[in-house]
């Protein structure tokens, strides 16, 4: 008795739509009801393919002189017969096929992000929500220099909660559509962790920039901020897509880099028109935060001599 062979009909995203077990070879594949594997595809011939063993035992697909032919994919090429390796894909009419033997070895199971226990616990979820709200409120409090009005201070928290629901729902819908799983709670916990991380990173960056009087630190804060955003996007993507983790990580990285590049280009373009813009380190913290002694007046004004050639160069450039 021959080994059981599986003929898989694939969807567009590479997912398996139908799987037929074939117990005996040769087997035929086509639209007619007397085939071993029946394809519901008007572009497939009644008897389109034959699946058989080759001379050295390999699986072979043979085109039965169909009008639309047999195509090997990656790269696409019309073939009369082809060896059906377990990862090779074929097209017949509008249907994608993959042939795998019973002996095909599958990789170990993936970590299930949705199953990760910590954010499944209600207490953890509540804690995360509290932390996110605290960040929003603290930020609002610290940046309000006028009299504190509790209602005005609370509004951003309300908006943040609404935004969080919309954001997590959108991802959950995407997950339902693409991976047949909503994972609302998991998406929400990712979306709550992000602002907490962002606030921590941005605040630390601001304090460090002031403490060391360093514009480089201030501008460099964009790197961890981008990293947090890329991580957030990556976590969301792993829940909604079946693509390999590596592909998703690269996609998240490229999306964040792309968005930041476009934003910084737009920023740069608009700043060119603002002749009165002064680019200097704008972070101000409490005097106690300062960690470097700074320059003597002599040194500061001696260093200011460097501005002259820069300005003169601007003058000549126009």
């Amino acid at each position: 008795m021959d080994e059981v062979i599986f003929v898989e009909v694939l969807g567009r995203a590479g997912d398996v739509v139908q799987r037929h077990a074939v117990a005996r070879l040769p087997a035929t594949i086509g639209r007619a009801y007397d085939n071993d594997v029946i394809l519901d595809d008007p572009y497939a011939a009644p008897h389109h393919l034959r699946l058989e063993r080759g001379e050295s035992g390999e699986l072979v697909l043979v085109d039965l002189d169909s009008r639309n032919g047999l195509f090997a994919l990656d790269p696409t090429a019309r073939v009369a017969r082809a060896t059906a390796r377990p990862d090779a894909r074929f097209r017949v009419g509008h249907t994608q096929l993959r042939i795998r033997p019973r002996s095909y070895a599958v990789p170990a199971e993936r970590d299930d992000v949705a199953r990760t226990p910590w954010h499944r616990k209600p207490a953890a979820l509540a804690g995360l929500y509290a932390a996110a709200l605290a960040c929003v409120l603290l930020y609002g409090f610290a940046s309000t220099t006028e009299r504190i009005e509790p209602l005005k201070l609370a509004m951003p928290a309300v908006w943040a909660t609404l935004g969080l629901c919309v954001w997590a729902s959108t991802w959950a819908f995407a997950g339902k559509a693409l991976a047949a799983r909503g994972n609302f709670v998991a998406h929400a916990s990712i979306a709550m962790a992000a602002p907490v991380l962002l606030l921590v990173v941005a605040t630390l960056g601001g304090y460090a920039a002031f403490a060391f009087s360093s514009s480089a630190v201030d501008e460099g804060t964009i790197v961890p901020i981008a990293a947090v955003l890329a991580w957030t996007l990556y976590r969301h993507l792993t829940l909604v897509s079946r693509q390999p983790r590596r592909t998703l990580a690269v996609a998240a990285f490229l999306i964040v880099v792309g968005v930041f590049s476009v934003l910084s280009l737009a920023d740069h373009a608009s700043q060119k028109d603002q002749l009165s813009r002064m680019a200097f380190l704008k972070e101000i913290k409490s005097p106690a935060v300062r960690l470097v002694p700074g320059a003597s007046p002599e040194a500061f004004f001696a260093a200011a001599q460097d501005l002259k050639p820069k300005v003169d160069a601007l003058r000549k450039a126009d």
Binding site: R277, A279, P293, F300
Partner: peptide, 19 residues
């Protein structure tokens, strides 16, 4: 107020100055 015909953009230097 500044116009491009007459003025370049600013270049700045910032630091703590200690006496």
């Amino acid at each position: 107020y500044a116009n491009r015909k007459d003025l370049t953009g600013y270049r700045c230097r910032d630091d703590f100055v200690t006496r």
